[in-house]
Amino acid sequence: MAMTIHVDIVSAEGAIHSGQATMVYATAELGEVGIAPRHTAFISRLKPGDIRVENEQGEQEHFYVSGGMLEVQPHVVTVLADTAIRARDLDEAAALDAKRRAEEALAGQTAQFEYAKAQAELAEAIAQLRAIEKLRKMKAS
């Protein structure tokens, strides 16, 4: 039997792949790497790209990751995949966006009126029911 290495590809939102492989290829920060079983411990950032996992039957499976981390130990490869495309300026933009939203939301009313109104009405109806129920219990006792 060929030597194998266990491969886990996980993202924050769930496991993507888990299984044995004879060879794993990934796009690391400083170039493409191929990892065979019993590779020495190694850790690297990943660039957006393909991860190829070759299994014992010689079939290749492809996974696209938009970045992340690659951790290698002699018998385990773990890919901590990002689900989002990450870059400093993109993150910056997201942060600014979050700030802007906060300011806007605190400054003015946004138009979610219809849903809010419907919900308020329903909440009122439920509250009424509860009140009546309580009254009834008080009367009964």
Partner: peptide, 8 residues
């Protein structure tokens, strides 16, 4: 999604 949280 985690993307939506990055900014905050």
């Amino acid at each position: 999604h985690i993307e939506d949280l990055i900014g905050t």
